[in-house]
C-alpha cells in the first residue's frame, strides 16, 4: 500500500487533489452565501434554518455513501482500502465544542467560510482568519504536541488527534 508522500508523483497528485477538493468546497460555500455573517446568524437565531439544512443534507448524502463504500471494501484511488474512523466522545470534545460554539456565534463564520469571505472581498475576513490562526497556535504552544500531519497514521493521538478531520 502506497503511503501518501513516498514518491514525487504521488505527492503531486495529492496536492492537485487538495487544490481541486478545496476549490469545490470553497465554491459550494460561496454558492450558499455561507461566508456571510447574516446567513450563519439567521440560522443560529433559528429564523432561517438554511445552514442546518445544508449540513443535514450533506450528511444525509455522505453517510450512506461512506457506509456503502466501506461495507463493500472499496479501494481508494490513492491510498488503499477505504477505512472510516470512529472515536468515543471524550471531555475535550465537549469543552472544545462549547468554545467553538461561542466562537461560531460571535465571529459568525468558521475556518472554511472565513477564507471564502476573504475572496468575496470582505476585509473583516482578515480579522477572522488571523484569530483562527492565533487560537490554533495558542493551543499548539499550550500542549507542546508537534503538529499532526493530519494524515491517517496520526489519527488516534489525543487532543490534536482528529485534526485531519
Amino acid at each position: 500500500m502506497a503511503t501518501v508522500t513516498d514518491r514525487p508523483t504521488t505527492a503531486r497528485s495529492l496536492n492537485i487533489t487538495g487544490l481541486v477538493a478545496g476549490s469545490l468546497f470553497g465554491g459550494l460555500l460561496a454558492g450558499g452565501l455561507l461566508h456571510e455573517y447574516d446567513t450563519i446568524h439567521n440560522t443560529l437565531v433559528l429564523e432561517d434554518l438554511y445552514v442546518f439544512f445544508v449540513m443535514g443534507s450533506a450528511i444525509a448524502i455522505a453517510a450512506p455513501l461512506l457506509w456503502f463504500l466501506e461495507r463493500r471494501r472499496t479501494n481508494t484511488l490513492m491510498t488503499g482500502l477505504l477505512t472510516l474512523s470512529r472515536s468515543k466522545p471524550e471531555r475535550h470534545h465537549v469543552v472544545g465544542g462549547v468554545l467553538f460554539g461561542v466562537g461560531w456565534a460571535l465571529a459568525g463564520t468558521c475556518p472554511a467560510p472565513a477564507l471564502v469571505m476573504l475572496s468575496s472581498g470582505a476585509w473583516l475576513a482578515l480579522v477572522a482568519i488571523a484569530g483562527i490562526f492565533l487560537g490554533l497556535y495558542i493551543r499548539e504552544v499550550q500542549t507542546r504536541v508537534p503538529l499532526s500531519p493530519g494524515d491517517r497514521e496520526q489519527h488516534n493521538r489525543p487532543v490534536v488527534a482528529d485534526f485531519g478531520k
Binding site: V102, G103, W104, T109, I129, G131, I132, L134, G135, I138
Partner: peptide
C-alpha cells in the same frame, strides 16, 4: 470569536 474558533 475567531480566536475561540481556532482554540476550540
Amino acid at each position: 470569536g475567531a480566536t475561540l474558533l481556532g482554540y476550540g
